[in-house]
């Protein structure tokens, strides 16, 4: 009972802070200085139509490299933590209950379409809402559907790891190219900026986002397969 009282008082305090923040908040009428810079300089500097993409891939590209590294670490730690159970996990156990004709047939129809949509989302990251992280998550959802349709299915860990490391390597390589050929690390102007709004524009941004998409998709898939394979031991 005392524990619930403490929790309640704590939440009341946090709630009071939030209420104070909420009542003291007044919406800006104009962009602040940094947002103003991004609004006016994005097109001339990077050629990307989606300003959020330009910030993530070019202006703060180094942070995104760190973020992808964090995801890689997560996938590696999940695999490490669950690895003891996976040692004998490759024997395929008989399915306990059938998943149903509807899901199996639907999977065969939907997986290619979902993969295609994921690729569309990360290739068009510089023009439309979307990008490497979203597209990678959509790719991984196709893998999830395949796992749902057949829980005993085993994916090739080596292929997933290879896609992941090759795309990471090329990502860093493009960054170093930017250092050598353009203004700095991960500068997208190593390729021509092209016509504003066309698919092949914004320099290296589409290339980098395709690599991020593949890397994120591979990392999410690796996390899911680790969790799925430990389940049936």
């Amino acid at each position: 009972m005392t524990k619930h009282m403490i929790t309640f008082l704590l939440l009341l305090g946090i709630g009071a802070i939030f209420a104070d923040l909420l009542t003291g908040f007044s919406a800006d009428q104009n962009l602040n200085a940094s947002a103003e810079f991004y609004a006016t300089h994005t097109v001339s500097d990077t050629g990307a139509a989606n300003i959020v993409t330009a910030i993530i891939v070019t202006f703060r590209g180094l942070d995104t490299l760190g973020e992808v590294t964090v995801l890689f670490l997560t996938a590696a730690i999940v695999a490490l933590v669950l690895s003891g159970d996976m040692a004998g996990g490759f024997q395929v156990k008989p399915r306990r209950w059938p998943v149903g004709e509807l899901l199996e047939t639907g999977t065969r129809l939907l997986v290619p379409l979902i993969a295609l949509f994921g690729a569309y989302v990360f290739i068009n990251g510089h023009l439309t809402p979307g990008g490497g992280f979203q597209g990678g998550a959509i790719l991984a959802s196709a893998m999830l559907l395949m796992l749902l349709a057949d829980p005993t299915r085993r994916f090739a860990h080596k292929t997933i790891a290879r896609i992941e490391s090759v795309s990471g390597l090329f990502y860093v390589f493009i960054g170093v190219l930017g250092l050598a050929l353009a203004g700095g690390f991960l500068d997208n102007r190593i390729l021509p900026l092209g016509d504003f709004g066309s698919l092949l524009s914004a320099g290296a941004i589409p290339l980098i986002y395709v690599l991020i998409g593949l890397k994120v998709g591979a990392e999410f898939s690796s996390i899911m397969t680790s969790l799925s394979e430990s389940e049936d031991v």
């Binding site: 800006d28 962009l31 602040n32 940094s34 947002a35 991004y38 609004a39 300003i51 959020v52 910030i55 993530i56 703060r60 942070d63 995104t64 973020e67 990008g131 992280f133």
Partner: peptide
């Protein structure tokens, strides 16, 4: 403002 959106994506 595009900056919070980039932040939230991260």
């Amino acid at each position: 403002d595009p900056v919070p959106q980039a932040l939230v994506l991260t």
